[in-house]
Write a protein that binds this DNA or RNA. Structure first.
Lengths: 188, 188
DNA sequence: TCCTTTATTGACTGATCATTCCATAATTCG
DNA sequence: CGAATTATGGAATGATCAGTCAATAAAGGA
């Protein structure tokens, strides 16, 4: 009555991410997780420790993948301003699925050092990459020179969160697109 | 061993709001509520029904008060652009306390019709008021005339959320102030 | 003074929760 | 074939939870 074929740990983690994105930590039960991950309850505890450790692993992996995607969009275009635009555009297109980063920050604020460390590290590297790109765009004359790159980068990241939150609240695609467009236009 | 002096229902509700802001719905227990509200357990159920009804009442009241504060700042100044600035400035100053509106949207998305109705109504009235003010500011030459007032208003509201989320994530005051300043400057 | 109103707490119910122990079954490797 | 590995699910534990009932106590009004 059992299937002792090794399961894919990363695939299972991705499934857990899907549940946590939708229901948060407190709103997720062990049963919801094992069902989505398609593994037995004991395997979950053997492999990931407990619910909190699994949650932290899920947030860490989610944030890592998400950061990589941001960086990839950011660096994909040759012109810096296009990289910034592509990053915002990607967020708009994928905004329908809830963001685990935002969910985690909303649910726990700064209460957990472990979570905060994950967020802070990702935020720092992303912020630095955006700052660099803003500087390049300024040099190319595509972004107002009187803008502080640090502030501009923080502003863009803030608007990434704004787009995702609006989507979670039910905003339609046109509204999300407008948010992305205006955020980028604010740098001109 | 009891104190049968009628308790203030509104005061108790405000205390409940304080707990829900910090811990969300799932993260809040009946015990946390009665302790904060300083009423007995049975009084809570007699007066507010159950935890979900209390939560909805808390969100409704929070959103109502918050919307009134926005409108008041918006209308306080004679020049429209100053009203918009005051609104953003107030958000920056009060961003340290978590927002129950954002928390509720993050936690439940569009899953509850009851909650969604509360948010939608408040959002509509606030959006309309900002649209009006943006139009006035355009007429006064303080906001770029090529901006769609609907989109500009949505943009400002999005940045309100961005400021509050950044604060929840641990951003310092200077960062929050920069977010408010840049959002407003984007309309120029 | 007595009665009604209001609030409180203890005891309890039933559900759900995270987590562990253990026996079992399927697969792989020697 | 036989042994080690790996995943599984039933049973159980102890905790916590939301919510109800009933007895009780304090206050106000007649």
């Amino acid at each position: 009555m059992a299937r002792p074929k090794e399961f894919d740990k990363e695939l299972a983690l991705d499934a857990a991410i899907g549940v946590f994105r939708e229901h948060g930590f407190e709103g997720t039960s062990a049963g919801m997780l094992t069902e989505a991950m398609k593994i037995g309850r004991q395997s979950l505890y053997d492999t990931f420790g407990d619910k909190w450790r699994l949650y932290c692993a899920a947030v860490a992996r989610y944030v890592e993948v998400e950061t990589r995607a941001h960086l990839s969009a950011l660096r994909g275009a040759s012109r810096a301003i296009d990289g910034l635009g592509d990053m915002m555009q990607r967020v708009v297109v994928e905004a329908r699925r809830p963001c685990l980063g935002i969910g985690s920050i909303c649910e726990f604020g700064r209460r957990s050092g472990e979570l905060s460390a994950i967020h802070d590290a990702a935020h720092a590297s992303l912020q630095a990459a955006i700052v660099r790109r803003v500087g390049e765009a300024q040099a190319a004359g595509d972004v107002r020179p009187d803008l502080d790159p640090q502030e501009a980068a923080g502003f863009l990241l803030g608007n990434v969160a704004a787009i995702r939150l609006a989507a979670r609240g039910g905003a339609d695609d046109a509204h999300l697109a407008a948010l992305g467009r205006l955020a980028l236009r604010a740098l001109r």
